[in-house]
């Protein structure tokens, strides 16, 4: 049984069980943005997240490796275009992550 802030919690409500891929702040920012849309390109995510190109690229790769995000590289004319979208499992993982955090908060004392 895990103990958090003095509260007794079931293992499924434990912070230790939180999805570590999504729990990282920069990746959570990206995931939150992708959750709100069908797809977004690299430029949009870059501007809205405030991350650097390298940071955004490495976090997207991590999300892609986890199967949460699909990345499609195409061209619009001569301009390269990187389209990112949540996969079905990514969307599901994000919902599960939100629920998990909510349950943790609900078990905390006032």
């Amino acid at each position: 049984m895990n103990e958090i802030a003095g509260a007794s919690m079931s293992p499924r409500h434990s912070l230790a069980d939180v999805d570590r891929i999504l729990h990282e702040p920069a990746r959570l920012v990206i995931a939150t943005m992708l959750y709100a849309v069908d797809a977004a390109d690299f430029l949009y995510l870059l501007r809205e997240s405030g991350l650097s190109k390298g940071n955004l690229s490495s976090h997207l790769s991590r999300l892609e490796a986890a199967g949460y995000v699909s990345i499609e590289k195409t061209f619009r004319g001569k301009i390269p275009l990187t389209i990112c979208r949540f996969t079905g499992s990514g969307r599901e993982a994000f919902r599960a992550y939100r629920d998990h955090l909510k349950r943790i908060v609900d078990t905390l004392p006032e």
Binding site: V37, A40, D41, L43, E48, R76, L81, I83
Partner: peptide, 12 residues
């Protein structure tokens, strides 16, 4: 718009 601030597609 998309070349300036990026492309977003919304759920249809």
């Amino acid at each position: 718009v998309y070349p300036r601030t990026g492309y977003v597609s919304y759920a249809r």
